[in-house]
Design a protein around this nucleic acid. Structure first.
Lengths: 180, 180, 180, 180
DNA sequence: GATGAATGAGGATTCATTCAT
DNA sequence: TATGAATGAATCCTCATTCAT
């Protein structure tokens, strides 16, 4: 899986093939197929592996934290996630969007949506009409801004987090200036 | 080009190949190659064709419109663009991000950035530290939200525009409630 | 035909195709096919056109000239022929050797062989066992040395002629030093 | 490589393609590409393989042999080489002359030229003005006469060798009758 | 379990030739 | 007669997957 990640980072989606991954991993293609049913299964596993720390961070958000604090933790988790390996993260975002990985993507998004939905129950949380849509859109905004930052090679985490936070608060029609 | 667009919409990136496009267009592969140097050149042209109406809309934004009005026009242009053929638009967004289409992408983004940068000169425009970054990030947010809307099959343009507008205003730390 | 010759000289056998020839000639492919049944017919005609001056020179060799003088004329004709357009000449030599142009080649060689065979009847001509073979071999030697000269970019006609003459005389077991 | 050789012999340059070679070899195209980067690389290897015995023979020419004896060995090596598989040899001669195989050709010719150049240092060797040119021209003559012999289906090695020897001696302005 | 050679379907591209205009 | 767009067979090459060792 790590070899697959490296190949994606180094040669992009076009250069990603089983032989390249096997070589990079220092094993034979045959061995690859012992552990992964096929090329897509390998990507699937990678997708899961990379999503894991983010999802774990979400689930570590303390249940009693007020909305704003929890939102910031969520944004930080996303930024952390995306800027750790920016190119890989962006590539996986796209791969996840492909038809073949629908299920994969849905389950990740579902877990994140669930967390975010629950956030909207908290004290001082904004009122929204359609909670799943709001959750999804907020995640989109966070992801878009972190991807763009990754692409630019941005390094300044805290400023990025603040900008994202402002956008999200705007989305919720909350006044940022009161909160951060 | 239209055949290429249809193939992308119907079969996705994986099903996109010269034979499929030729067949869909009702011509021979040979004919395809009379008009496009190669597979990528066809995508390039399609990219350009699809970006055109959006860019044209941007350039139609009246020079004297105040910032908020202009911003709304920009958002509307983007939403219009993206929801016309949502699947195609999302696919092209990804394709544009591939290394092979860097130049293409850069030129489109540059034109949009320029328009947005100029908007920031206008009366009542927010102050931002790094104008190119702000322009890029705002475009990212708009695109992310329209893509997500396209994916969900959202139809209600005006509500979508309003939500995007709120997020962007939040990003600029402007108070939406005063403006729209 | 001239366009075909130029294409061969400029792009070699690999770059030689009907479209290239038509473009070079400033006409349409369609027109090409009005004058030449197909690609090979065009080469055939070119082959003939290029062989012509050489064959004509052979036929101008005076009937009463003694062997040595006639042989020199023949060598000069060949050198002239080959060094006029060296690259083209070498390419055509090869093309002529292809199965598809057997007839063409045979007829050219036959005419040259005939002339050379008759030379061997003359006064002071060397005795050879197998006249057609001798004729063919002498032509081979002449052609090989002129081709090599063309490849090297050799310009000094008279020295080249002398070297070839020596080789041919050697082949006939004649003493050059007595004759030239 | 042997399959490639056979295809060339049986179907000529036009019939030479990767599928034909693979079929002839009784393997899949894929396997071909495991051993040869591409079509040309296969030809390159074949070129080298076929040149090898000739070059080896040249290098076996004893250092102390007098010029005439060494020259005969060289001619015999060439004749042997060319008459073993005449059609293949002629085809490879042409292929070697193509731009794409320049390097290949140069290295072969260089080794042969070197041997021949050294021969010209020996006792009783003829004096020549330009040694590299002389070497190249002698090789041309030998090759031309062996090629022609191959084309005719000539079988009589020793006579062929004698005729070539005479031509070469003539070229060097040496009197054959004194030597062989 | 590991290996990696073999497979061959799939896909991009070229180009000789035709034929409606 | 000239045109040149259209055709599609032919060809090169890649790569996911298998399986004998």
């Amino acid at each position: 899986m790590e070899a697959a990640a490296r190949v994606l980072e180094e040669k992009g989606l076009d250069g990603y093939n089983t032989n390249a991954v096997a070589e990079r991993a220092g094993v034979s293609v045959g061995s690859l197929y012992q552990y992964f049913r096929n090329k897509d299964a390998l990507l699937s596993s990678l997708l899961e592996r990379e999503a894991e720390p983010f999802l774990a961070a979400l689930e570590r958000i303390p249940g009693e934290a007020p909305f704003q604090a929890a939102l910031l933790l969520l944004i930080e988790a996303s930024v952390q996630q995306q800027l750790r390996r920016p190119k890989l993260a962006r590539l996986l975002d796209f791969i996840e969007a492909q038809a073949a990985f629908e299920d994969q993507a849905r389950s990740t998004v579902d877990r994140a949506q669930l967390v975010l939905s629950r956030l909207l129950d908290r004290e001082k949380a904004p009122k929204v009409e359609d909670r799943p849509t709001a959750a999804m859109e907020v995640l989109s905004v966070i992801r878009a801004l972190t991807d763009a930052a990754g692409e630019r090679g941005e390094q300044d985490y805290s400023r990025l987090v603040r900008r994202i936070h402002r956008a999200v608060c705007g989305y919720f029609a909350m006044d940022v200036r009161k909160t951060s």
